Simulated assay, not measured.
Amino acid sequence: MGLNAALAVHPASGRGAAARVAEAVAARLRPAVDRLDLLTATSVEESRALMRSSHAEGLDVLIVLGGDGAAHQGVQFCADHGVALGLVPSGTGNDFARALGIPADPRAATDALARALQAGHRRRVDLGRAGDTWFSTVLCAGFDAAVNARANAMRWPAGPRRYDLAILAELAAFRPSPIVVHTDHGVLSGETSLIAVGNTPYYGGGIPICPDATPDDGLFDVTVIGAPGRARLLRMLPHLRTGEHVHKPSVETFRTRTLRVEAPGWPVYADGEDQGQTPVEAVCVPSALTVVAPAP
């Protein structure tokens, strides 16, 4: 039985980068599979409909060409339907691809994926589950979620710089709040600026907010930043890019399989996608997703 794959293209990803490289990516992948369907969609609804149609015809591997938003939609479909996921990053963040060790350049990523397809390399990775939504990278609430919302609304600049500017803008408006966090090991509470629940280390285009998170240990790595004040929080920001923030006195880290976050109407984002407001519950589901990639 042959290997049936579909290439889901989100033309707007990376300010049109996905559309520009789609044909070249497809040409590189076709020799590695027996069948490759091209699924081009401009909306989530259209994308899901095309994925369902392809699945009905015997889909084995869904390959997503796009950024983290596109990858998030691919994760939803693949986890729910038992289909393997391949990624060719072409967005502005690409945090899930980064966590899996996939090259940032779309052509290099395509060549690596083609080799993995031909060799039959597969990995099982964990996913987070919040309500009806799967997430592969980080669920966040509080300051960082507010930054995510602001960054999504900005049209300039592209890439990580947009996230950095959103951080600075949000500093002027955000206030720490009391939260209660229920974990496997008890309850934490206090004045807090943000909580990040990591299945993988990165969000915001490469910020290792949960630097030790790995997607195959059955646990979340959780980072909680207290209420250090604007000036100290601002001084902490450069350390976020290196992962050194976890050593600051106002930062607490721990691991848990389940948690519930109770806070006064904080925004919640997962994989950079809006998930409403707190309270929010999440659980780490071991080996929930198959990805086409060599072992780390």
Results as ranks from 00 to 15, higher is better:
A149P: 03
R150A: 10
N152L: 01
A153S: 15
R155H: 10
P157H: 05
A158D: 15
G159D: 08
G159K: 11
P160C: 06
P160S: 15
R161N: 13
R161Q: 14
R162N: 13
R162I: 07
R162Q: 15
Y163M: 12
Y163L: 11
A166Q: 14
I167F: 09
I167W: 02
I167R: 08
A169G: 09
A169M: 09
E170W: 05
L171M: 15
A172K: 12
A173I: 01
F174K: 02
F174A: 08
S177M: 07
S177T: 13
P178G: 03
P178Y: 07
P178K: 07
I179L: 09
V181N: 04
V181I: 13
H182A: 09
H182Y: 07
T183Q: 04
T183R: 01
T183F: 02
D184H: 03
D184R: 04
D184N: 10
H185P: 00
H185K: 00
H185D: 10
G186L: 12
G186R: 12
V187L: 04
L188G: 04
L188K: 03
S189Y: 04
S189N: 01
S189A: 10
G190R: 03
G190N: 08
E191S: 12
E191H: 06
E191N: 10
T192W: 06
T192Y: 02
T192P: 10
L194P: 03
A196E: 09
A196K: 09
T200K: 00
G204Y: 05
G206E: 05
I207C: 01
I207P: 02
P208Y: 10
P208N: 05
C210T: 10
D212E: 14
T214E: 08
D216K: 08
D216P: 01
G218A: 00
L219W: 06
L219Q: 06
F220M: 06
F220E: 05
D221N: 06
V222F: 12
V222W: 12
V224G: 01
V224H: 07
I225N: 02
G226D: 11
A227C: 08
A227S: 11
G229K: 07
G229M: 12
G229Q: 08
R230G: 06
A231L: 15
A231I: 14
L233G: 01
L233D: 07
L234I: 06
L234G: 06
L234A: 15
L234P: 01
L234C: 12
R235A: 15
M236Y: 10
M236C: 10
P238E: 07
P238Q: 11
H239P: 02
H239E: 13
H239R: 12
L240K: 05
R241N: 11
R241C: 04
R241W: 13
T242G: 13
V246Y: 05
H247Y: 11
K248L: 15
P249D: 10
P249W: 07
S250A: 15
S250F: 15
V251A: 12
E252N: 06
